[in-house]
């Protein structure tokens, strides 16, 4: 599992996997994909790093504290975006009713608040999957 060729290939590929995951998260409102699938792709890049380079190096780069923070504040970000509607005096999670200019259909800003909500959901799904994998890997002593 600790192979030289494998390490070099993974070191080249991992940034592109991560970039593709963030692309799927950001464009979830207007194209196939979404924050759930994009978050899992971002998590898969970290899982590949932990599988090839060892669990200890992955935990140096992503400590437990950061994972707990992103896990909690991703959910809180969703609630904050929903409260925009209530502050404006319209129902929870409302988009066009809250007076947001949706712009030209088909462009990235056409989703309104949906693209911003997707960022929070994607980060939360990614940190949850990484936490699950780390917990299962470190179980055995």
């Amino acid at each position: 599992m600790r192979d030289f060729v494998l390490k070099r290939v993974v070191a080249v590929i991992i940034p592109f996997i991560s970039l593709y995951g963030f692309y799927v998260i950001l464009h979830g409102a207007i194209s196939p994909g979404g924050s759930f699938a994009g978050g899992i792709i971002v998590a898969l890049s970290v899982i590949a790093f932990a599988t090839i380079f060892g669990l200890d190096r992955a935990k140096e780069k992503l400590p437990e504290k950061i994972l707990v923070w992103t896990d909690s504040y991703g959910t809180l970000w969703y609630v904050l975006m929903g409260l925009v509607g209530i502050v404006k005096g319209v129902p929870f999670l409302s988009n066009r009713l809250a007076g947001i200019n949706l712009g030209v259909p088909g462009t990235l800003s056409a989703g309104g608040l949906i693209a911003l909500i997707g960022i929070g959901v994607g980060i939360r799904v990614a940190s949850t999957m990484i936490t699950l994998f780390f917990t299962m890997m470190e179980e055995e002593k």
């Binding site: 759930f36 699938a37 899992i40 998590a43 898969l44 999957m129």
Partner: peptide, 9 residues
């Protein structure tokens, strides 16, 4: 896309 990503994970 979701099925492929979640299936691998």
């Amino acid at each position: 896309i979701t099925e492929a990503a979640a299936g691998i994970c």
